[in-house]
Write a protein that binds this DNA or RNA. Sequence first.
DNA 1: AGCACGCCGACT
DNA 2: GTCGGCGTGCTC
Length: 823
Amino acid sequence: MPVLIAKIALSAATFAIDKPYDYLIPAELAELSPGVRVIVPFGAGNRRTEGIVLAVETAENLDKRLKSILACLDEEPVLTDEGIRTALWMRERWFCTVYDAVRAMLPAGLYYALQDCYRLADGIEKEAALEAAGRSKYERQVVELVSVRQSGLEAAQIREAFGTKDPGPALRSLLGKGVLALETSAARGVGDKTEKLISLAIPPEEALAQVTPKRKTAPLRYAVVELLAGIGEAAVKEVCYFTGAANATIRSLEKSGLVTITEQEVFRRAGPDHVEPAGPVKLNREQDAAFQGLNAMAEAGTAAVALLYGVTGSGKTQVYLRLIEETLKRGKTALTLVPEIALTPQLMAIYTAHFGDEVAVLHSSLRAGERYDEWKRIRTGKAQVVIGTRSAVFAPLERLGLVILDEEQEGSYKSENVPRYHARDVAKYRAQRNGALLVLGSATPSVETMYHARQGDYRLFTLARRYNERELPAVFLADMKEELQAGNTSPLSLPLRQALEENLKRGEQSILFLNRRGASRMVTCVHCGQVPSCPRCSAYLTYHSANHRLMCHYCGHSEPMPDSCPDCGGALEFVGAGTQRVEETLKELFPDVEVMRMDADTVTASQSHEKLLARFREERIPILVGTQMVAKGLDFENVTLVGVISADQGLYLDDYRAGERTFSLITQVVGRAGRGSKAGRAIIQTFTPENDVITAAARQDYDHFYEQEIGLRKVRNCPPFSSFFVITVSGAEEGQTLRVCAMLRDTLLGWLGAEPYRGFSCQVLGPAPAAITKVNNRYRYRLTLMAENIRLFRALVAHLVRCAQADRKNRGVSITADIDPMN
DNA sequence: AGCACGCCGACT
DNA sequence: GTCGGCGTGCTC
């Protein structure tokens, strides 16, 4: 008798054991189709696990050993066939499990939280249950707990009652005896972002009276209560930030009844601005030429990739819009990806203006419900145009005809957590499968992309003229070495200071720009040179003026800023030119001038950076200092001066992409400045004014930069000439971590010497400690393999990782692999 | 990674 | 008996 069998990818499967598992489809689920999620028993303990059906098959002879699917979670498939294929491809391509990929593809609002609920089995009374439990004290405890309520008890509550002791064995034993019944329910809609709020549960005086006696021994408890007494209700996160209290402290305060914690949904979305429908798109001759070429490619219906290389301000957006219009006319759908939604609000507004309700927007600051709604609109075909950030590359569009990746060189397209995919590659894969056109747009294309374009793999379209023929600002390189020799240790050079003064006199606005990496601010002792570092990480602590504390950016540790050096008592001094330091310097120089600072610290939920920028423009605040996010303000009419504080920051890092990043950053800052009718100026501060990357960027000379860079890449065998495979080993014990890493290298070298890998070109570097060796008390060592990114070699790396993970000797260490990581 | 299973010694 | 600890092997 034939039976139905489902191939299922499981959430509980780790990378080492991930594969499609076979389960029997029970009669009541006979309609089950691929793409729906199910609950299945897995492992020796039959723990409930979420999975997704990859395929349904019929088998003639029933294999007795197959387990059955317990329940189905979706009425309709949440993944299309293409989605399933993409997930399978991602496992092979990015060293993740199929379910890791599935998780990345689905909107948060679709997540289920599985909840196990234990109750006495039907027809079993408490007495009988106790008897069955026999003399086992834990089993008796479980029976006592569970029999309180007819409906039974959630697993989490039983675990809580047991404290540190694991109730698992007792529960399983009782389950086996038939005394207990287990029901697994799937609760939906847990994905919404909530924020925990904390407030005093008792009057402030009383609370203070309770904690004051132990002020010396429990300073954090005191600090939290004191803060709350002053401000009333606050977010737990903020309270931790300002006092340095850990979550444990907060919980203990809650337990002692001093504070109460409530959860509230976070509303982060700025209301959708109402946009007037836009008129037809007009293209100039150059844009039209690019459009015609691209459109012909899209129309052909065969998969292809094109690079639209258009200098800043050349009007790539209009070309996108025309291409999308034509794609829609052909009855196909279009997907546009942008690096960070926060940096491209205009693009969204423009899309909405052109395509109205047909546009769906997907990005991280949407609430789970909104994201889910947008996802549904796409899934049901109501939205045919999608714009969004990295994960929007998985938008469930059918009949995909066009994919646009704007600012394709941006690093944010690469995911930093599992699955560590690159949206560009996923986009390429989807375009390939759909016979769609992928357009990579950029003013400063990544070296890899330009290489492919020049090789003829991608068609190249160029927009060389600035829209409206606007003039570039005059660029001046300020030599910071000279400044230093002249005794100027402030972050502002003399030329920049003079330019600022002139702008202030003329009533024009200025923007000072800091590289992100230069944004942090360390503290050092003038006497002994000590720099306070994190106790859990091998990283220096950074000073935050908002709470006057030293914080670790890797693990979140924080401590109060000491008055003097903890080691020798010497005076402490700030190093590095963070935005805060620049702001303070400006305030000293121009005491009566308002300075606005914009960085991760000042941009919060209520002070979104659009709001800050709007204020900057409307109130004509003379000077704006900030990181990347200030770039948008450069378009403003009254901004006539832009200063790049530390152009070198990040340029001399041990990273082959450093040059590319610096070039892109400076080029865009300069290219955007002086958009108005008044002539603009740009001052770039650098310690190495002769550096090729910096001078090329000042001239807006991409070709020169590219020629230099591709030569370097070739010599060093960096992408696009090879790929970096980085295997990271991390563990609590440094010796073991290093040993495992070395063992991996030896195994790999052994394999590379044998068939079928003999002769395959692969450079093996390491084991080397990661840039931040210790994070959260775990040591990290890595192997770097430089090799061609082909299936055969990926299979080898995957096999290596799987073997190492399965090895009992490597317990306690985690082993992961990544391709072309961003740091 | 979980989890069972088998084995051992300790407690009572 | 029961409990805790630990090594080994499998997950449809």
